[in-house]
Amino acid sequence: MSMLGLTALGGLLGLDGTSVGQFMISRPLVAGVLAGALVGDPLLGGLIGAVFEVYLLVSFPTGGSRFPEGATATVVAVGSSAGLGAEGGGALALAIAVGLAWGHVGGLSISWLRQVNGHIVSRQGRHGGRSPSRVTALQVGAIALDFARAALVVGTGLVVGRAALTAFAPAWPLDMRGSVGLVLVGASVSLGILLRDFGGFRKNRIGFVIGIALGLVGARFL
């Protein structure tokens, strides 16, 4: 049941990524909480979502660029690790690895879908499909195809991820703290990239250092 639910959730969040609304409920933080609630482990969902959110701070659905699909990555990661016991750390680390890989599969599938859409649009143009009903049918059909794409990618990702985690998580050599540290090393690269995007360290050093101090104080007292 949760597998079907996660697949449907993956399809819906996939739509939000580009096709419908872009309300950003497909961002990892939100997707992680939703997927976690669906599998009965909102804490793990929140943690995986928060880690992916930092990874994907520099990944946006801009124009024709290919980007890793954050919702796919998160739903696959949460669904694959649910019920395996996150306290050992293996479930978390392996889920992040599977999610990162499957996020790229999601990105590739979006490029493929856009090519298919292009063929359909060209064909319709050649056959004079300019009536409002045909235009509406094309648009709705493309959205349905995007839902099917996202659900298929998430569904297969869950099968692969579940098999990988069941095989490897029990013998994972790091504890939970080490596992979180390992995945945050990769995430910290995104923070550096973002500071560069904002103009670099030299230009922003005062604001950045004030922020670090505020973050440390907040972590100490909140």
Partner: peptide, 23 residues
Amino acid sequence: GVVVLGVLGGALLGGSGGLGDAG
């Protein structure tokens, strides 16, 4: 955004379950 980026860095370093706890 730069200040918030710093806050996030500080939270990851000092927050419970973050890098500070990892070692």
